[in-house]
């Protein structure tokens, strides 16, 4: 059964794969390297050896008040994920455990709301937010992020819940478990991994959302996406600092992403590829 793979073949493929991987990873790697260079080094030609200064990280905080957008990103992504889960868990639960003939239609309809291009509703949302005083507030943005990701959250939870076998409930019932006993001791432990994966993917999506977070904020509630985008004006003397800010902005999500590769596929394809 085990086919012997010739070592030469393995070495060739290893070199090829590592070259591709390093090429794709290079922009990120170079950003991290540039973040510990001085501003002078950053614009004096290609170099992979920085002087390992950490003053950029200090200056990003002291000059640009980095913690405000960072805190906003954390609060917005966690809060919107929490709200979405609170709304979505009961719905997905009901659809997975007591499906009706219309369940499939409801799920497909939820998915279809995700197809609406954001820019098409930019004008009404902007005007409503202006009239209701929600522009540049965390409340308004949390609501937006929750609504944007709600269909994905319901779908992902549904595909996980559906895999919990119904027989286990019957067994619990035969053993005399009450409804609350069922939920607390049988279903919840089995549902936790699915909920955790959903949460992880949703935090990533909310953290990186770059249309509404840029358009509906100015300073108070601007998360990192808007903060970084504000650096777009052409200047040449701040690259090391920009790299430091960028590294801090992507590091948490990059690490979370590495741990959620499998769930990512499932969540983003709505269960079509597992």
């Amino acid at each position: 059964m085990a086919r012997a793979v010739s070592t030469r073949r393995k070495v060739v493929f290893t070199i090829l794969a590592w070259s591709v991987a390093l090429l794709l990873f290079f922009p990120i790697l170079y950003t991290v390297i540039t973040s510990v260079k001085t501003e002078g080094e950053a614009i004096s030609g290609f170099s992979l050896i920085p002087s390992f200064t950490f003053e950029n990280y200090v200056e990003v905080q002291t000059q640009r008040d980095y913690w405000r957008p960072f805190t906003n990103s954390v609060v917005l992504s966690l809060l919107s994920t929490f709200v979405a889960l609170v709304i979505a868990v009961p719905a997905a639960w009901a659809m997975a455990f007591s499906p009706t003939p219309r369940t499939k239609d409801i799920l497909m309809w939820m998915l279809s709301t995700k197809m609406m291009p954001a820019v098409a509703v930019l004008v009404p949302i902007y005007l409503l937010f202006r009239d209701w005083g929600l522009l540049d507030t965390r409340t308004g943005l949390t609501f937006m992020l929750t609504m944007i990701n709600l269909p994905i959250v319901v779908w992902m939870l549904y595909t996980y819940f559906r895999e919990i076998p119904g027989e286990i409930l019957e067994a619990a019932r035969m053993d005399g478990a009450t409804l609350w006993g069922e939920i607390a001791y049988v279903l919840t432990p089995m549902a936790i991994p699915g909920i955790a994966s959903t949460m992880l993917l949703n935090i990533i999506l909310a953290w990186n959302e770059s249309f509404w977070t840029i358009r509906l904020t100015t300073t108070n509630s601007a998360p990192l996406t808007a903060f970084i985008a504000s650096f777009s004006s052409p200047q040449g003397l701040f690259w090391a600092k920009l790299s430091a800010a960028s590294t801090l902005a992507i590091a948490p999500i990059l690490i979370m992403g590495w741990f959620s590769q499998k769930q990512l596929v499932r969540g983003l394809t709505f269960g079509a590829v597992k």
């Binding site: 990873f25 770059s210 970084i228 985008a229 777009s232 960028s246 902005a249 992507i250 990059l254």
Partner: peptide, 18 residues
């Protein structure tokens, strides 16, 4: 694998500015 999937987690403004 980790290196190859990393760009997906970079927020669009950072990716574009880098």
């Amino acid at each position: 694998r980790i290196m190859i999937i990393s760009p997906f987690f970079v927020m669009p403004p950072v990716a574009a500015l880098v």
